[in-house]
Simulated assay, not measured.
Amino acid sequence: MVLGQARDEPPGWYIEDVGRGMIYKRGRLLGQGTFGCCYQVTEVTSGRVYAVKVIPRARLTAVGIGARVEREQELHSHLSHRHIVRLHGHFADRSHLYLLLELCSRGSLADILRARGRLREPEVRYYLRQVISGLHYLHGHGLVHRDLKLSNFLVTEKMQVKIGDLGLARGAAPDGQRWGLELYRRIRGALYLLPPQLSPQARALITLMLDPDPVARPSLRDVLDHQFFTQDLSHTNIGRGKPLLVLGTV
């Protein structure tokens, strides 16, 4: 027990990237996940602020964790899009691996939903457009994210959404094959519930997107052309002035 606790101790208040000669001052805790913790850090020379994902070396030996971290590093190094979290670099010391990421200071959409409880559909449209833009970019590079959830949609100070955590992303599955297990049983059986407060347009779009027949589902372009998005353009003021804490499940 004592050894396990020691392995998961946070890094010091100052974190050094020896290879690049950079020193970062650790700030507030941004979140915790399967790999480790994420902190806000400041590069002491330039004053630039980042997020750093801190992964104890001991966890890299767990089944699948090391490969997932390597995949995330590799994919991020080839991707550049306004709605994908940017990886600025990675380095390590004797006890931790560090992924230096673009800072999304307002947390995730999961955090925002917990604070709000419910979101208005114009707000959903505003942010969902950004998510779709990021997904379109990933799909254009032959990648399937495979872990799309609110906690992996991060929000910047200017209320811009960034898709993060590419550790489970893979190339599209070959014809006749699928990635996953239980999820696909639910998809094939159309086993899901819709909240009663949804508008008819929202219900219609979700039903289309969750059609058991993949051929019948709309493309990302078709999604954006659906009446759910075209019925109301009042989203243009969202994010101006005092930022709204917005977005959750449709």
Rank of each mutant, 00 (worst) to 15 (best):
R86S: 14
D211H: 15
Y127D: 05
L75M: 07
F35H: 05
R116F: 06
Y24Q: 04
M1E: 14
H136D: 15
V131F: 06
P218D: 10
F91R: 01
S151C: 10
S234W: 05
A51Q: 02
K25T: 07
Q177I: 08
L245I: 15
H145C: 03
L113N: 08
R120G: 09
Y39P: 04
I163W: 01
I163H: 00
N152S: 07
L154S: 03
P196E: 10
I112D: 11
T34L: 13
T45Q: 13
P200I: 06
V144T: 09
S46V: 09
L79V: 08
R203G: 08
T45D: 15
Q32P: 03
L128G: 04
K158Q: 14
H235E: 13
E182K: 11
I112F: 14
P243H: 05
Y137K: 06
L103H: 00
A216L: 15
S108M: 04
D232P: 04
V85M: 07
Q231A: 13
V41T: 05
A190P: 00
T42L: 10
G167H: 02
R120I: 07
T34G: 11
D232S: 05
A172W: 07
R118C: 15
D8H: 10
L99V: 02
D232C: 05
H235S: 12
L224Q: 10
I187H: 01
R186W: 07
T34Q: 15
T45C: 12
H145I: 02
H226M: 10
T249V: 15
R240I: 10
K53D: 00
I187P: 01
V223A: 11
E123G: 08
R146G: 02
L100A: 00
R120A: 14
S219I: 11
A115L: 14
Y24R: 02
T34S: 15
R240D: 11
E70A: 13
L138R: 04
D225A: 15
M22W: 12
L247W: 11
V18Y: 01
H235I: 00
V41W: 00
I15L: 06
G12Y: 03
Y98F: 13
R178H: 11
A58R: 07
F35W: 08
Y39R: 04
R129N: 03
L75H: 04
V124H: 03
A92M: 09
G107S: 01
D175T: 12
V54R: 00
L119Q: 12
A51H: 00
Y126H: 14
H76M: 10
P214I: 12
D213S: 15
E102V: 05
T34W: 09
E121A: 03
D222T: 12
A6T: 11
R203F: 03
A62D: 14
R86V: 10
A58N: 02
R94H: 13
G164M: 00
G167M: 02
T236E: 13
L87I: 09
R186V: 04
G19Q: 06
M22D: 09
D211P: 08
E70H: 08
I15R: 00
S108Q: 03
